[in-house]
């Protein structure tokens, strides 16, 4: 399992986007997720993101992200309850604690914590989408265009990672054959066994790195100005998705500066829908952001669209 990327190539529409437009789409989602704190907005963004995750075939992996988020949500609620004094509806008046002051548990703080948990889940889902939408190769290629050296370090390390993992298994077997039992002993003994493993691993791969460097040298690496091999295509779909994402961002920032999409938690939680909600505005943003999804859907069911975008 560790010998291949988390990403899975499935030839889907969203995976065929130019990495730049895919990255912009993800970045806009992330920005909006961190900008709005209105539960309805967060729910709207979450539904698009999860739909997109489904569209790139990452729903099973998303469930794991969901589990992590639920665990972290409880921590967020506790911390907020502990530190927030602004809530009016006090459910339980606690004792005085050094550093933090009086411990009052307010309904508002719990509500805020829960909404923040929703935001966490949203952000996790956005990263989950990223994992399945963009091939690491393409990010590395993009990076190499700006910084050839760090790009090379990353791709070299990524290329070697599966080899390192399988070498670990090999060394473990070799040591077992020399009488090392990795399951026995105290924690200290176990650690020393693993340290031997790590030592062999380091020695072997550092030795190999000298030969890798030689191969790089022989292929003229560092002999002067480099050029950059580009294999990405810009298609009409990229323009469309890029435009939709950027318009969504501009719209959202405009609306947000007008006070839309913010929810007042303190001192008393406001109504879910009121003047500051801007339902129409919410729908506009959601529609713009679901544009790539609509295209994806159309692309998969309509051959005509396939050849045109």
């Amino acid at each position: 399992m560790l010998d291949r990327f988390f990403y899975r190539e499935k030839g889907l529409f969203l995976q065929s986007l130019h990495p730049l437009s895919a990255l912009v789409y993800i970045a806009v989602l992330l920005t909006l997720a961190l900008m709005f704190n209105h539960p309805l907005y967060l729910l709207g963004l979450l539904s698009i993101t999860v739909a997109a995750v489904k569209a790139v075939g990452g729903f099973d992996a998303w469930k794991a992200f969901l589990k992590i988020s639920l665990g972290a949500t409880s921590v967020i609620i506790i911390v907020n309850v502990l530190t927030v004094r602004a809530g009016q509806t006090v459910l339980w008046g606690g004792p005085h604690i050094p550093v933090f002051g009086r411990l009052d548990v307010s309904l508002e703080a719990i509500l805020f914590g829960a909404v923040m948990g929703l935001r966490l889940l949203l952000i996790m889902s956005i990263f989950c989408l990223y994992n399945f939408m963009i091939h690491p190769d393409r990010v590395l290629d993009l990076l190499s265009r700006f910084s050839s050296k760090s790009g090379l370090v990353l791709s070299l390390a990524a290329r070697m990672f599966p080899a390192v993992v399988s070498r670990i298994d090999g060394i473990r077997e070799a040591l077992t054959a020399r009488g090392v039992d990795f399951n026995a002993g105290t924690l200290k003994e176990k650690m020393s066994k693993y340290a031997v493993l790590m030592k062999i691993l380091l020695l072997t791969f550092l030795e190999d790195s000298m030969e890798t460097a030689e191969a790089m040298y022989a292929r003229a690496f560092g002999s002067g100005r480099r050029s950059c091999y580009v294999r990405e295509n810009l298609r009409p779909r990229d323009g469309a998705c890029l435009a939709a994402s950027l318009i969504a961002l501009v719209t959202a920032v405009y609306g947000w500066s007008k006070g839309l999409g913010t929810f007042g938690f303190y001192p008393q939680a406001g109504n879910l829908i009121d003047g500051r909600t801007g339902i129409g505005f919410l729908f506009a943003v959601i529609f713009l952001l679901s544009f790539p999804l609509l295209l994806s859907w159309g692309w998969h069911i309509w051959p005509f669209l396939k050849s045109k975008i």
Partner: peptide
């Protein structure tokens, strides 16, 4: 990308 690595280092045009 591997095959293109050498030509890139030579600074060849795309």
């Amino acid at each position: 990308a591997e095959i293109a690595f050498g030509p890139e280092n030579l600074g060849l045009p795309q």
